[in-house]
């Protein structure tokens, strides 16, 4: 068993009076890809966003229970959400590069977090981040070009490079491939598999096949409940809960 990165205990999330996440308990392992699957509105994205306090930005959202990162409560008053998000990076459904050069897209985070002492340091971070995101060879000759000029798949890898530049410990991905073609999807999936040697990766996906391809652990959410959580191979060959069975095999639940 790998080390536990995130530990959630009796987590409830409310949007106003709507109870969106109901009593979720889960341990997310380090250096592992964990997939969250479930029908639209089941709470998987809400739960993902509560792992780096993205829900703080929504006024009516309330989180109860404990979410521990390496044993520390991330909702503790002393925790700075900006520092937390440097540790727990996020990649979104639609690639959203800054309207800046490719170089500055990557350099932005390390600059504001003071991760580079000088220009040489920063150059190195940019290069290694782009290499990790398997984008370096395609953009090394045009680092000054705008990030928004890249193709969709390249933009998404740029966003992943940007997320890994601040040396996070966890990478949260919310449908990172839904706007990509199959080739770009395969490249991002290959990347996710490589990233898992350094990070804990949590991915929300509507594609069951993607969850099966990239993850080692799968969690199935339904109506705000965590219905089943287990080894990906087991979930897809012999799920315990009939609701999981219905969902993954494409039956009416």
């Amino acid at each position: 068993m790998k080390d536990i990165k995130f530990s959630a205990r009796n987590v409830q999330v409310y949007y106003g009076t709507t109870h969106a996440i109901k009593d979720v308990n889960v341990d997310i392992a380090d250096k592992t890809v964990t997939a969250f699957i479930g029908p639209s509105g089941c709470g998987k994205s809400t739960f993902l966003r509560s792992l780096n306090r993205m829900n703080d930005t929504i006024d009516i959202c309330r989180v109860e229970g404990d979410i521990l990162l390496d044993g520390e409560d991330i909702y503790d008053k002393r925790v700075d959400p900006v520092q937390l998000r440097a540790k727990v990076g996020m990649v979104f459904q639609k690639p959203n590069p800054f309207p800046k050069s490719i170089y500055d897209n990557i350099a932005y985070g390390p600059r504001i977090h003071g991760l580079a002492k000088n220009k040489t340091d920063l150059d190195e971070i940019v290069e290694s981040s782009l290499k990790r995101a398997a984008l370096w060879n395609e953009v090394k000759d045009r680092l000054d070009a705008p990030g928004t000029g890249l193709s969709g798949g390249q933009q998404q890898r740029l966003c992943i490079a940007r997320a890994v530049a601040t040396q996070p410990e966890v990478l949260l991905m919310d449908e990172p491939c839904s706007a990509l073609d199959p080739i770009a999807t395969a490249q991002v999936e290959e990347l996710i598999d490589e990233l898992r040697s350094n990070f804990s990766v949590v991915i929300v996906t509507h594609s069951m096949q993607q969850a099966a391809r990239v993850s080692q652990k799968t969690a199935f959410f339904h109506l705000g409940n965590l219905v089943e959580y287990g080894e990906t191979g087991q979930i897809f060959t012999n799920p315990v809960d009939p609701r999981t069975e219905s969902y993954i095999s494409g039956r009416i639940g």
Binding site: R243, S246, G250, R251, I252
Partner: peptide, 11 residues
């Protein structure tokens, strides 16, 4: 649980 797939051709 229903025994039928959403996609009936699969069944």
């Amino acid at each position: 649980m229903s025994d039928q797939h959403i996609l009936s051709a699969y069944d």
